[in-house]
Design a protein around this nucleic acid. Structure first.
Length: 885
RNA sequence: GGGUGAUUAGCUCAGUUGGCUAGAGCAUCUCGUUUACACCGAGAGGGUCGGGGGUUCGAGUCCCUCAUCACCCACCA
């Protein structure tokens, strides 16, 4: 495409895929661990392989891509490692739903067939997602694409499990877990959400007490009655005392328990407990060594302990039990306006039934981790890395949230009863007398037929997805070939993996605040334990993208969801990228807005037309010499270029993407397009124009990679080069005085434009006195002010307006004189207020004493400038009053 | 119950260690098609920065307090 044939409007979809292909072919995104450059590495948060990329993905791809491209431009060896996550629970749920739609289920088709189907599904959706990531312009190193179920990553998962087991950090035990009867698995505390629900709250007679409950169906086994040790009302009852009470299925022996966990002000201050089906009750039972009995089975039905109600599901049983208690005269009251929180699984929304199960856990309190020469618990390490500055979280306020979460952290249940995922590397066998032996290791133990043991069988459960994601920053950097050799010890594997040595710890983790606990905290937990390193030096958290109405985009409101792939063909990827970062503070949520998309599409078109105009003026020059400006405008342009480059760099170095983009936007639109290009129309300035265009493309590239590269490819002086790997340029020398003169010209032009507008002038003549730089820029002044003509005069004769900014005059007729006086009067009043304020400040001894010197001298400068402006205004006012008489 | 954030122009939001005569985009009004761009240009209007108190020479920015909204964590039987 020749430069002269650029169409008037930039049509992104005509270029984007070719440009991406060009980048990929060039190898511009490959990291090079053998280089001696400084490193910059990011592990991309692996999207779930569920098939579609959301605006949230578009946002993180944009932010990380800006970092990657910027750091490449700064001369660093950049690794941005892409990948995808097998998303155990999410994918598993999709496949189970499909099976249900076909009228079958996982048990019918069996584990192998289930896994085959799942693999087929994810290989399809992975392909779709990788295409979409390319469509966003992500400059990641595709040669290092990783997947959480890759062999080398699975090895890391097993190594971690085994090492933690051996250190006593992973244990298997009967503990209460969050059981989802729908998906038939337990989930971690963080995956449970609470939904407010109106229900009934019953009060029953329990011996001499009254107890309240929202869940009568769990009450069969309640043989402990608990109250606060200091509760005066019940001081006659002693801890451990027993009494017989009439209950659902006849009399039972109840034991009094005193525990401070009971809130005396809630209800009657007395409760019975169900340790098998409540976290709090379980903890209490553990404290006092109480019995725990299962009441509800894993499908949500009552067990034989419920007597006549056995086999019923919860909803059915509840009403009948209440009815029975009522008939026995034990029902005291029902509050049917009771609002309480129901625990549900975030994924699939199944109601959680706490259950005691034999599961695998990570112990977060055991002092078993070597960190900086001290034995600490996982919790302590997670706190230490932030407190001691090894990791910085941005925005900083999330550090507090992070600590609060750690304070509340319980042991992490890592086993899941689903089939899709990393199978737990534990094997069991039983003796003929029922003894169970456990083996944990990378490979199954050898069977020995001796002594009547049965064969080893692997634990059927899989690991929580986050267990493998937690290793992501380093499991992706392990050498894949070396990892296949299981005889190579893990420590050696780390040492010999070149990428791990070069790129770990990663420079920064950029992700959404919503997975701070799920993921970021757990990466810190596992990575410090396994590698002795932090996973990253910084955490940058971005916010959520909500629908235009400020509510969450949700599948229940399909119309609220914006698909990036609907936006890109129409507006272009660059427009989407910039819309997502424009005016958004770090960590803050944002609302989607079509207005921003249009603004940024227009910005791309502005860049395009700057290029179009420049190329017309520049012609087919094949070299790009350093420009030596011949005009004030040229010097000014270079001064702005230098300033912008510095500010932009400052913002990008400190991860202020919104401000960086704002800086770029106004530089391009205001300084380059509206001032410099307009000014250049009356000047010979091809060299500066070409050079500035070249620089603008480099500066804008991290934000708008496609349009800038598309233009770069048509520039006559860029040859076969690729913009994506070009560093930023040094600004050539310029004359500061000339640049400042142009600032004055700008001020005059702005004022004259305003005068013309507000006074309704029609093409007045402009006069100026003998000011050399004004004389030199006469044509420019005229053109930019939209005036008819300019004359040089030594004295003002006739009726004319004087500029307050500089010595130049506008020729007017008598009809505007009055309007001008009125305008002047208002301006003089305002100017006097400004001066009074500045005088007040400088008259304040304390201000002069305490404020920094440069602030004070700045105020003084402002005052003297304001005073001279006022003088000119007063003189003008007096002159006009005399003339118009 | 504990915590975090938000509250700035009609709307959506920026505003780093206090120095601001408070900004942007969109919207509004007025002009303008001068050969890069109407996905354009020029100009204008619009805010006592949620209320109250405090610290300071100086507060949108720091502290206290109140109000409203959103969210997070814990979860009460």
């Amino acid at each position: 495409m020749g430069a002269m044939q650029l169409p008037k409007v930039y049509e992104p979809n005509q270029y984007e895929s070719d440009i991406y292909a060009l980048w990929e072919k060039s190898g511009a995104f490959f990291a090079d661990p053998s280089s001696h450059k400084k490193r910059f590495s990011i592990a991309m948060p692996p999207p779930n392989e569920t098939g579609t990329l959301s605006l949230g993905h578009a946002l993180f791809l944009t932010l990380q891509d800006i970092m990657a491209r910027y750091n490449r431009q700064q001369g660093k060896d950049v690794l941005w490692l892409p990948g995808t996550d097998h998303a155990a629970l999410a994918v598993n749920a999709i496949i189970e739903k499909r099976l249900a739609d076909e009228g079958t289920n996982k048990h019918e088709i069996g584990r192998d067939e289930f896994l085959n189907r799942t693999r087929e599904f994810v290989s399809q959706s992975r392909g779709t997602m990788l295409t979409q990531m390319r469509a966003m312009g992500a400059s990641c190193d595709w040669s290092r694409l990783r997947y959480t179920l890759d062999d080398s990553l699975s090895r890391c998962v097993n190594e971690t499990f085994v090492k933690m087991y051996e250190a006593g950090v992973i244990y298997r035990g009967h503990r209460i877990v969050n059981w989802d009867p729908n998906l038939e698995t337990n989930v971690s505390d963080d995956e449970v959400i609470y939904v407010e629900e109106k229900g009934k709250f019953y009060t029953f007679k329990y011996g001499p007490f009254e107890i309240g409950t929202a869940r009568p169906e769990t009450k069969f086994g309640d043989k402990y009655v608990v109250m606060h040790p200091d509760d005066e009302r019940y001081k006659q009852y002693k801890h451990g005392e027993t009494l017989e009470v009439e209950w659902i299925n006849g009399p039972i022996q109840a034991t009094i328990i005193k525990d401070k966990a009971v809130d005396p002000s809630f209800g009657t201050g007395v409760m019975t407990i169900t340790p098998w089906h409540s976290h709090v009750d379980f903890d209490m039972a553990e404290r006092h060594g109480l019995d725990k009995e299962q009441i509800i089975d894993f499908h949500g039905r009552l067990l034989p302990i419920a007597g006549e109600f056995a086999g019923m599901d919860i909803a059915e049983a509840r009403a009948k039990i209440v009815d029975k208690l009522d008939k026995k005269g034990l029902l005291v009251g029902v509050n049917d306006k009771y609002v309480h929180n129901v625990a549900v699984n975030e994924r699939g929304k199944g109601i959680i039934e706490p259950q005691v199960r034999l599961q695998w856990f990570v112990d977060v309190n055991k002092s078993a981790v070597d960190w900086k020469g001290k034995k600490r618990s996982l919790k302590e390490v997670m706190q230490a890395v932030i407190h001691e500055g090894d990791i910085e979280i941005m925005p900083q306020r999330f550090e507090k949230i992070y600590f609060h979460w750690i304070d509340n952290l319980r042991d992490w249940c890592i086993s899941r009863q689903i089939w899709w995922g990393h199978r737990i590397p534990a094997w069991y066998r039983t003796d003929t007398d029922g003894t169970i032996e456990t083996y944990v290791g990378l490979t199954p133990p050898a069977d020995d037929e001796s002594q009547g043991w049965n064969e080893w069988e692997q634990d059927p459960d899989t690991l929580d997805t986050w267990f493998s994601s937690a290793l992501w920053t380093w499991s992706t950097l392990i050498d894949q070939e070396l990892a296949a050799d299981l005889t190579l010890p893990f420590d050696e594997l780390l040492k010999k993996s070149r990428d791990f040595q070069a790129y770990h710890p990663t420079s920064i983790m950029e992700t959404g605040w919503d997975i701070l606990f799920f993921w970021v905290a757990r990466m810190i937990l596992s990575t410090t334990f396994m590698t002795g390193q932090v996973p990253f030096n910084k955490v940058y958290l971005h916010g959520l993208i909500r629908a235009e109405d400020g509510k969450k985009m949700s599948k229940s409101r399909p119309e609220s969801i914006i698909d990036p792939l609907d936006v890109i063909p129409k507006y272009g990827t660059d427009a989407l990228r910039m819309a997502l970062i424009m005016g958004v503070a770090p960590g803050n949520d944002q609302n989607w807005g079509w207005g921003k998309i249009e603004t940024n599409r227009n910005f791309c078109n502005k860049l395009w037309n700057i290029a179009r105009y420049s190329l017309e003026k520049v012609g087919e020059q094949t070299e790009l010499p350093e420009p030596e400006p011949s005009t004030n405008a040229g010097h000014w342009m270079l001064s702005k270029l230098q300033l912008t480059t510095e500010i932009l760099q400052g913002h990008l170095d400190t991860y202020r993407f919104s401000e960086a983009y704002d800086t770029l936007y106004h530089f391009v639109w205001d300084d380059v397009a509206d001032w410099y290009i307009e000014a250049s129309k009356t000047e010979q300035s091809g060299e500066v124009l070409a050079y500035v265009l070249d620089c603008v493309l480099r500066l804008a590239h991290p934000f708008a990679p496609f349009v800038t590269e598309t233009i770069w490819q048509v520039l006559p002086w860029t040859g076969e080069s690729i913009l994506a790997v070009q560093p930023w340029s040094k600004t050539p020398k310029f004359d500061k005085v000339a640049a400042a003169d142009f600032e004055d010209i700008k001020a005059i032009v702005t004022e004259v434009r305003a005068l013309i507008k507000s006074l309704g002038l029609r093409k007045p003549y402009l006069y100026y006195t003998d000011v050399p730089f004004l004389a030199a820029n006469a044509e420019l002044l005229t053109r930019m002010s939209g005036l008819a003509s300019v004359q040089e005069v030594s004295d003002g004769n006739g009726l004319h307006l004087t500029s307050t900014a500089y010595k130049c005059w506008l020729d007017v007729d008598t009809t505007v004189a009055e309007a001008h006086i009125h305008r002047l009067t208002e301006q003089i009043t305002a100017q006097k207020e400004v001066i009074a304020r500045l005088n007040g400040r400088l008259g304040n001894e304390n201000y002069v004493k305490h404020a920094p010197k440069e602030v004070v001298s700045e105020t003084k400068a402002q005052l003297s400038e304001a005073e001279s402006t006022l003088e000119r205004m007063l003189a003008e006012h007096q002159r006009f009053a005399e003339i118009s008489g």
